[in-house]
């Protein structure tokens, strides 16, 4: 019996030693922290390389957890003030808005870059855009000419019957597009638009944005609504046949006469209790610097948020366009209504 007691005591003691040793050194109030922890939904090779560039330049180590935005939000919520995360980085402003509403972010203040236009950041300064994509109309060059295209709204016209290839309404990109239409018009108009698109679909929604373009290359559908990013990926694919599919479509920026083309933002914010706030600010500044912005532009086919930096050649070739400058909070506000409309009109 005695031996067990001694063993037990030893275990307890060793745990406490480990704990007390790791405790103070890790809390790092006295010593300057040389790391920064980031929860990100973006899982691109370009991000990884940009993080490596940061470490090389500053000596600050970046620790990354990559998972879905909503899962990360849930994790941040549960961890509360004990969370190790300093930064939350994700595609789609709706998720950033969700994190902000749940009180998981803090104001960026000093970290806000003057080079990022106001319409690419949170209006209260809780996060700011790093890159963005335009949600454009892709059309099959064989059968459609650009002068037949004008607006998102026009695609609901019966003359496009059986000609639209588009992905599921579970895509956040489609949701925020519909939210932007609700914002520009009203729920009824938005609903009849969604119903019109459903009626015009060439097939039931399936696959991702790239798959719509490949479907059009196969003669299924003549127009599609896709993100520029995926067209860029397709055009630069390692498979020559995918490149061919990408080349078979043209890009059209809709609503140029009116409110502008809908865009999606990737944004970053500092968490409420960031233990390494200083480093977090440094990383944001780094990501928005001209050097890294042009790296992003050329490696991920996204538009750089920094207005001083030009997009990649592939992307620039599509031309300049007018962005829909609605407030991101409005998109987020209408998101659930958009989802309900999709369900009601049977957009799967």
């Amino acid at each position: 019996m005695n031996r067990y007691k001694i063993n037990f005591l030893l275990i307890v003691l060793s745990i406490l030693t480990v704990v007390s040793c790791s405790g103070p050194s890790k809390s790092g109030e006295e010593t300057k922290s040389m790391e920064v922890n980031i929860y990100t939904q973006r899982h691109y090779d370009a991000d990884k390389k940009a993080f490596e560039m940061f470490t090389e330049k500053t000596g600050i180590k970046i620790n990354v957890v990559k998972a879905g935005a909503d899962e990360l939000i849930n994790k941040l919520e549960l961890e509360g003030d004990a969370s190790p995360a300093d930064l939350f980085f994700t595609v789609d402003a709706g998720k950033l808005y969700r994190a902000k509403e749940k009180g998981l972010l803090q104001k960026l203040d000093g970290a806000l870059s003057a080079d990022v236009p106001e319409n690419l950041r949170d209006e209260d300064g809780f996060w700011q855009g790093v890159t963005y994509r335009a949600r454009v109309i892709a059309y099959s060059k064989d059968v459609v000419t650009p002068d037949q295209l004008s607006t998102y709204e026009d695609l609901a016209d019966p003359r496009w019957n059986g000609k639209i290839a588009i992905r599921s309404s579970s895509s956040a990109y489609n949701q925020s597009l519909l939210a932007s239409i609700i914002n520009a018009t009203d729920e009824e108009t938005a609903k009849s638009w969604a119903a019109g698109i459903v009626a015009n679909m060439a097939r039931e929604p399936q696959g991702g944005d790239r798959d719509q373009i490949k479907a059009m290359a196969s003669g299924v559908g003549e127009v599609s609504i896709v993100n520029t990013y995926y067209v860029g990926l397709l055009l630069n694919s390692s498979n020559p046949e995918e490149v061919k599919a990408g080349e078979s479509v043209g890009i059209f920026f809709p609503n140029q006469e009116g409110r502008g083309t809908h865009v999606n933002v990737s944004g970053i914010g500092i968490t409420k209790n960031a233990p390494n706030k200083e480093n977090a600010i440094k990383l944001i500044e780094f990501l928005l610097s001209e050097e890294v912005q042009s790296f992003f532009a050329n490696n991920s086919y996204e538009y750089p948020a920094n207005s001083k930096v030009a997009p990649a050649e592939t992307v620039a070739a599509w031309g300049d366009f007018k962005k829909d400058n609605l407030l991101f909070s409005k998109v987020a506000e209408h998101n659930n209504t958009a989802v309900k409309i999709f369900d009601e009109v049977g957009w799967k």
């Binding site: 406490l16 704990v19 890790k26 809390s27 969370s83």
Partner: peptide, 11 residues
Amino acid sequence: FDIKIKLLITG
């Protein structure tokens, strides 16, 4: 014990 630690098990 006035010992400050971080999340140990999580992650």
